[in-house]
């Protein structure tokens, strides 16, 4: 099958490529656009390691074809913070030991980023429910939940201080 032209915005930058219709978005992001943060874990949309933010939704990029992302606005972990200016979530995951092998972490943080936009002050139960599309084999989630709660508190405090 022939390749088709695909264009999308990734972390604020317009990117384009030629892709077969069957090429999965995760492969195009990782291999053509160099965004290696999102990972491949299960390939059947259970583990969430490939989670990206696409048009304001948390999406498992292993279950979307690149052609379906035409014109989409995508944020990956690479777009969430910079080395000089880490996102609060990134800082809190480190502070509270919310990661070990690091493989699930980009998906976790990217998902948590959207969760906190939709629910800036979640309960622990809401965090656990909202993060249930992301599997972690190392941490047992306890410190991930702690990190997200701490990030929410810090973001809210910063918001209040700004007002």
């Amino acid at each position: 099958m022939g390749k088709v032209h695909v264009k999308m915005t990734v972390n604020g930058q317009e990117m384009e490529t030629l892709a077969e219709p069957r090429e999965l978005l995760i492969h195009v992001l990782r291999e053509q656009f160099g965004m290696k943060g999102p990972h491949i874990g299960c390939e059947t949309s259970h583990c969430g390691a490939c989670t990206i933010d696409m048009d304001g939704k948390s999406v498992k990029a292993c279950t979307v074809f690149a052609v379906q992302a035409e014109s989409a606005d995508i944020t990956t972990i690479e777009g969430i913070g910079t080395p000089d200016n880490l996102h609060v979530l990134q800082a809190m995951f480190r502070e509270h030991h919310g990661l070990q092998c690091g493989y699930c972490t980009p998906g976790m943080i990217t998902r948590a980023y959207r969760l906190l936009q939709e629910n800036p002050d979640p309960t622990e139960e809401e965090v656990r429910f909202g993060m249930a599309g992301n599997l972690c084999r190392c941490t047992g989630y306890q410190n991930i939940v702690k990190a997200i709660m701490a990030a929410a508190a810090e973001m809210n405090a910063a918001k209040e201080a700004a007002q």
């Binding site: 949309s45 989670t51 939704k57 498992k60």
Partner: peptide, 9 residues
Amino acid sequence: IADPQVRYC
């Protein structure tokens, strides 16, 4: 149904 990411799609 499923999980948050799947419910977005």
